[in-house]
Each structure stands twice: as structure tokens, then as C-alpha cells.
Amino acid sequence: MDKLEVPVYLITGFLESGKTSFLQEIFESGEFADGERGLLISCEEGEVELDEKATLACKIDTVTLDEEEELTADFLENCKNVYKPKRVFVEYNGMWDPDTILSVDMPRGWEIYQIVTMIDASTFAVYLNNMKSIIGNMIKCTELVIFNRCSEEQDLPMFRRNLKALNSNVQMMFEHKDGRMIELGKDIPPYDLNAPIIDITDDDYGIWYMDVADDKDRYEGKTVRFTARIMKNRKLPKNFCVPGRKAMTCCAEDIRFIGFLCKYPELDNLKNGDWVTLTANMHYERRREYGGVGPVLYATEVVECAAPEDELVYFN
């Protein structure tokens, strides 16, 4: 691999999501006012314009791309030869396919260093309902999402759950519309964590699944009960299966099975695909199947049952 000489910072998001304002803050911070030349590749034109003083202080040259098809290896190579930047910022059009820039051959020494997605919290629910597949494409490769223009009336924990369903590793920041940062803390789940048996309803399965993956201290040693479909796999150890549900993480074309490893001594009595109500003790263990530490269910009772009316689960 070529030595990283020119880091490429990819800033994406829909029009008017705050990308330009974010870049303005970066350039005004003085972090990049070190005398090295930089290049900004702008892929759309919003209402906010960069302050020329900030770009001059950071020695930022700007080029504009109007069409996605123009983003080619030849274009980037020409940028390298003409501007000779030591760092590159790409203000990416949120309606363009992220794979366009992620798959293009970068000039020697160039490499995407960080991907940040800006989201306007005031319009996010509308986009989520109507353009979830496009949001999914953006989030799947993002390292950091910054929600701006947040308010107390918005269901920010729901925003977080939906993005975690799309990319479990994504980090998120929430900025109030007055500029201060909002610390969400832990979600309060819609079920009783202190009950002898935590009953997980069909509607709450997605919330439980995300919370279990994120917060082992809440669930270590707990007993849970939920309805799931049994999935067997020859690659799993004897008496192990994965009880779970199908989830729509992005769109109708992006449905996947989600569940956790489970040990049940009488697994031979069940067929692959059976619907069951399962009661199990939860423990977190280092497992090859997870590639690290993950939740393991130890079933104490398994009762066959009918499939739920809606087999899909959601993360709202």
C-alpha cells in the first residue's frame, strides 16, 4: 500500500444539512492553517458560502463538480497535478452514490482518512420515512454522524437507534439549534429491566437487540423472554442456534436476520425455522462466532408458537 501522504476528508449529507458550515468551522479553527496547501472539491452549491478569509488562511483551493460522472480517476489525478494539495476535503452530494468516490482510483498517496455525515435533525424524520435507502447508503460507510439543529421535542434516541441499525460502529454527536452539544446518555427501554423475567414484545425486539449489543452491563445475568424464529447452522457448535427475527434496516430490499447465539440442550427437538417463545439467561462471552465478546443466551424454556402477525421488526 502506498504511504498516506494526502488525507482525504469526505463530508457528506443532503443539501442544506450543514456541510459548508461544518467546513467553515474547521477552517476557522486554525487546525489547518499550517502553511500546507489544501483542496476543497465541492459537489453541490448550497445557500451558505465559505468565508474567503478562512480558506485563504488555510491555503484552500476550490474546484467544483456538477455531475457525479465527472468524479473519475483522471479528474482526481488532474487535481493532484494542478493544485498539489497536502490535504483534500470533499463536500459530497448526499444524493450521489457513496460508492462512486469510495471505488474510484485515488492518486498515489491519496487515501480517504475520515468520513463525516451531516444531518439536519429538523428534517431527518421526513428523510427517514421517504429516503431510507439513500440514508442507508450514506451511513453504511460513515464513521461519524453529526446531527445539527436538534431540539428537545425531537426523538433523538430514536434517531440514534435507526442509525445504529444501519451501521453499528457509527459514532454520533447531537448539536442543539443554539449551538450547544446534547448528551443523550442511555436510552430508557420500554420494558422493565428489573423484572425477574424481562418480557420483550414483538414491537420492542429491535430496541432490545440494539441495546443488548451496546450495553452489556444492563443485561449480564438477566433473564429474558421473547418470540423468535429458530435458525440452525452446521457451522455452530452442538446444541447452539440463533433465535432471531428479520429486520428491515434500510428498505424492503435490505432485510436481514438478526439474533444472538443461543445454547439449548434439546435443540434436536426443533426444526430450522420453527417459531418459539424462548426464555433464557444472558451472559457475555468471548466467542469465535462474534470475533470477540458478545451476548450468549442459555435457554431455560422453549415453547413452540405461531408466527407473529408481522414477522418483521423495526428500530423505532
Rank of each mutant, 00 (worst) to 15 (best):
L15G: 09
L15Y: 14
E16C: 12
E16I: 04
S17A: 15
S17Y: 07
S17T: 10
S17L: 07
G18R: 12
G18E: 05
T20R: 08
S21M: 01
F22C: 04
F22Q: 07
L23Y: 08
Q24M: 13
Q24Y: 08
Q24T: 10
Q24S: 14
Q24E: 15
E25D: 12
E25H: 05
E25F: 03
I26Y: 02
F27Q: 00
E28Q: 13
E28V: 03
E28M: 05
S29I: 10
S29P: 11
S29G: 11
S29Q: 07
G30S: 10
G30Q: 04
G30I: 05
E31W: 11
F32G: 06
A33R: 11
D34G: 11
D34T: 15
G35T: 15
G35Y: 08
G35Q: 15
E36W: 05
E36L: 15
G38F: 03
G38D: 02
G38I: 03
G38E: 08
L39T: 12
L39K: 09
L39D: 08
L40C: 05
I41R: 05
I41M: 01
S42E: 15
S42R: 14
S42T: 14
C43N: 08
C43P: 07
C43L: 10
E44S: 03
E44I: 05
E45S: 12
E47P: 10
E47N: 11
E47L: 06
E47D: 14
E47Y: 04
E49D: 07
L50C: 01
D51C: 00
D51N: 10
D51G: 00
E52S: 02
E52H: 00
E52R: 01
E52L: 01
K53H: 01
K53C: 03
A54F: 02
T55A: 13
T55N: 02
L56M: 06
A57W: 00
A57I: 00
C58H: 04
C58N: 09
K59T: 06
K59W: 01
I60M: 11
I60K: 00
D61G: 07
T64F: 15
T64W: 12
T64Q: 12
L65S: 01
L65Q: 03
D66L: 14
D66A: 13
D66G: 15
E67K: 14
E67L: 10
